[in-house]
Amino acid sequence: MCICINCNHITECDTYHLIESQHKQLHLTETPAFIPKCPVVCVNISSNSSHTQIDWDLVECLSFVEKPNSWNLGCD
């Protein structure tokens, strides 16, 4: 699971912007200005005979500052 969803920096984070792109999701911001320290991204690949799925998760980051539900801009 991506820890970004509970991080105070999610809306401005350059690495989360990359993860959004990989998941083909709309961006929380088009111009992220925050570059986190030592992010660790885990890429999980699963496949069967007809489908391959790739999941990108940020699992560790020295810049992580806990703020539950930070991704949900309507819930502060």
Rank of each mutant, 00 (worst) to 15 (best):
residue 53 Q to V: 08
residue 69 N to S: 12
residue 25 Q to H: 11
residue 71 W to L: 14
residue 69 N to P: 08
residue 59 V to F: 03
residue 76 D to Q: 14
residue 23 H to S: 07
residue 13 C to P: 05
residue 29 T to A: 12
residue 40 V to C: 08
residue 27 H to K: 14
residue 57 D to Y: 03
residue 13 C to A: 03
residue 41 V to D: 02
residue 24 K to W: 05
residue 44 N to E: 08
residue 53 Q to A: 04
residue 51 H to T: 14
residue 15 T to D: 05
residue 72 N to C: 14
residue 43 V to E: 10
residue 10 I to R: 05
residue 19 I to P: 04
residue 20 E to K: 03
residue 35 I to R: 03
residue 63 S to H: 02
residue 32 P to M: 12
residue 55 D to K: 03
residue 6 N to G: 02
residue 24 K to S: 13
residue 63 S to V: 05
residue 5 I to R: 11
residue 28 L to I: 11
residue 42 C to G: 00
residue 42 C to Q: 11
residue 23 H to E: 09
residue 68 P to C: 02
residue 48 N to K: 14
residue 57 D to A: 05
residue 63 S to W: 01
residue 50 S to K: 14
residue 51 H to N: 14
residue 25 Q to N: 12
residue 70 S to C: 11
residue 4 C to F: 04
residue 62 L to V: 00
residue 70 S to K: 07
residue 25 Q to S: 11
residue 66 E to Y: 01
residue 22 Q to H: 12
residue 39 P to V: 06
residue 75 C to W: 11
residue 31 T to P: 00
residue 3 I to P: 04
residue 37 K to F: 06
residue 64 F to E: 07
residue 8 N to R: 13
residue 60 E to G: 07
residue 49 S to E: 15
residue 11 T to W: 10
residue 55 D to L: 03
residue 46 S to E: 09
residue 34 F to Y: 10
residue 57 D to L: 02
residue 20 E to T: 06
residue 1 M to V: 04
residue 7 C to Y: 05
residue 49 S to G: 12
residue 8 N to L: 13
residue 72 N to A: 14
residue 76 D to K: 14
residue 63 S to P: 03
residue 11 T to P: 01
residue 59 V to H: 07
residue 68 P to E: 13
residue 54 I to N: 00
residue 37 K to V: 10
residue 46 S to T: 10
residue 52 T to L: 15
residue 17 H to E: 02
residue 32 P to D: 10
residue 65 V to H: 00
residue 19 I to M: 06
residue 54 I to W: 02
residue 28 L to A: 12
residue 61 C to H: 06
residue 9 H to V: 05
residue 27 H to N: 13
residue 58 L to F: 00
residue 51 H to D: 13
residue 24 K to P: 00
residue 37 K to Y: 04
residue 56 W to E: 01
residue 45 I to G: 01
residue 33 A to G: 01
residue 49 S to D: 15
residue 55 D to Q: 03
residue 39 P to L: 03
residue 67 K to T: 11
residue 41 V to H: 00
residue 3 I to H: 04
residue 74 G to P: 09
residue 5 I to D: 09
residue 2 C to T: 11
residue 75 C to P: 05
residue 1 M to G: 06
residue 45 I to D: 00
residue 10 I to S: 09
residue 74 G to H: 15
residue 29 T to Q: 14
residue 58 L to R: 11
residue 6 N to I: 01
residue 21 S to E: 13
residue 55 D to P: 00
residue 46 S to Y: 02
residue 47 S to V: 04
residue 15 T to Q: 06
residue 29 T to N: 15
residue 50 S to D: 15
residue 59 V to P: 05
residue 65 V to L: 04
residue 8 N to M: 10
residue 24 K to T: 08
residue 11 T to Y: 13
residue 33 A to P: 00
residue 60 E to F: 13
residue 34 F to V: 01
residue 41 V to G: 01
residue 69 N to T: 02
residue 55 D to F: 00
residue 15 T to H: 00
residue 54 I to R: 10
residue 2 C to N: 09
residue 21 S to D: 12
residue 22 Q to I: 01
residue 37 K to A: 11
residue 18 L to D: 05
residue 35 I to H: 00
residue 74 G to Q: 15
residue 22 Q to R: 12
residue 37 K to T: 06
residue 74 G to R: 15
residue 59 V to R: 08
residue 39 P to F: 06
residue 14 D to I: 05
residue 4 C to V: 04
residue 22 Q to K: 12
residue 9 H to S: 07
residue 75 C to E: 14
